[in-house]
Design a protein around this nucleic acid. Structure first.
Lengths: 229, 229
DNA sequence: GATTTATAAGTTGTCGACAATATACAATAT
DNA sequence: ATATTGTATATTGTCGACAACTTATAAATC
């Protein structure tokens, strides 16, 4: 089984290429949706996609079903499937559920007395990104912060739900007006959370997370409502 | 589709007979799993199922994918798919997530000042069932209680997650030793929750729900561990 | 002109067959 | 006896075709 490094790299690449088509297609479509390239409401027709990708309908169907499971696509009887429209309500539900998960995570972390040092790394990355006015870097560090927080809770079921949630959050973020976000403010919101965690102050953690999320959720909900998706 | 192959298998609901085969098959398999007829670890082979149900593999594949989404089935490379084994950890995660959802629901109900009269109906049904020593009736009323509680929170995303959670709870319940459950005690656990809700006592609600769920979760986790699934 | 009916087009649902790949087992060589 | 190789088998992945059903369009009737 031991081969030279070059073949190892090659096998890694072919491993991706040799994944089932449905996975490749699902990944492709998922990226298109959460990046905003496929806007909410877009119709997905199996035959069209199959022709476009030069594959049969079978893997397309399965890929679409995967995305339906992700909550990114919904079925419309005998018309096709379409990218799920984003309603104000859904945005609010998405963010409120994220708050619940993060509060749950915080409680578990405190119960288990887990160190939260890992969070500081992402806080610093966010601060740097804010200084450089680098929105992409801030977004990346922000997600890393939240993902780390959830991961520390060591709860697979919640993590799975959270991943699904975050797909939609990505989609929302791709459509929102980033210009109205104050990078420094967002970066500044996170260190107090870590401090509260280190001090074991549950109520403060809950308060901070709730307030932080709500302000973002309100911005996004307003934006999406205005876009009329 | 003038002749439905599945009628031979005892599917009696007429409404369901016009649904796509994948839905019928998924429902059938789901019932088999959550009722304990298909035990955790059972292998599901597409060709075998297709032959057994007199359909092609296509709807079987899609049905299996649906159940994979439900978290009831997992894939095993080049062996087939199997009913996901139940681990102690997973049981604990399932119940702890249910607690979080119910606490979230309670908070929202209190915030919206929603009347919770509907819950009393199910409390009474549970009391009656306990008096009659009718385990099935108690289980039904119990689920109705919890489903109503979640429903009152008016949060579609959470409801969807909760439904998925409850599938696994059904599966767990089907495998547990019902004899060790004290019906009167379970029935008695619910009215105080409704009282606390009516009094707006959030902390008490949280406390009651947590304690109530934990005792059941501990019983089930022990039972499953002992069964070595 | 409005309403009903017939026709066409488009989309999903299902099928049977073939290809690819991993596993299990037997046969062979060392 | 152990390791290796080859072969058979089992299972999933993918394809192209056809059927069923819904919607849209055009025609016909009143």
């Amino acid at each position: 089984m031991s081969e030279n490094p070059l073949t190892q790299l090659g096998s890694t690449l072919t491993a991706i290429e040799q994944m089932p088509l449905r996975i490749q297609i699902a990944d492709m479509l998922r990226r298109a949706i959460v990046s905003g390239n496929l806007r909410p409401g877009s119709l997905l027709v199996e035959t069209a996609l199959a022709a476009q990708m030069n594959v049969s309908r079978a893997p397309i169907r399965e890929a679409i079903q995967i995305l339906e499971n992700d909550g990114l696509i919904e079925s419309i009887a005998y018309k096709g499937k379409r990218v799920k429209p984003l309603t104000q309500r859904e945005i609010e539900e998405t963010y409120s559920l994220r708050v619940v998960f993060e509060v749950m995570a915080a409680r578990r972390i405190l119960e288990m007395n887990k160190p939260v040092d890992a969070l500081w790394i992402h806080c610093r990355a966010m601060a740097t990104a804010a200084d450089n006015n680098d929105r992409d870097a801030l977004t990346t560090a922000d997600e890393a912060f939240h993902r780390t927080l959830i991961g520390l809770a060591d709860h697979d079921l919640m993590l799975t739900s959270w991943n699904s949630l975050y797909l939609r959050i990505h989609q929302i973020m791709a459509l929102r007006n980033v210009a109205q976000l104050n990078l420094a403010e967002i970066a500044g919101n996170h260190p107090p959370i870590v401090h509260a965690l280190e001090n074991g102050d549950v109520d403060k953690v809950i308060n901070l997370i709730s307030k932080h999320t709500r302000s973002i959720a309100d911005l996004d909900a307003a934006k999406i409502a205005e876009m009329n998706l």
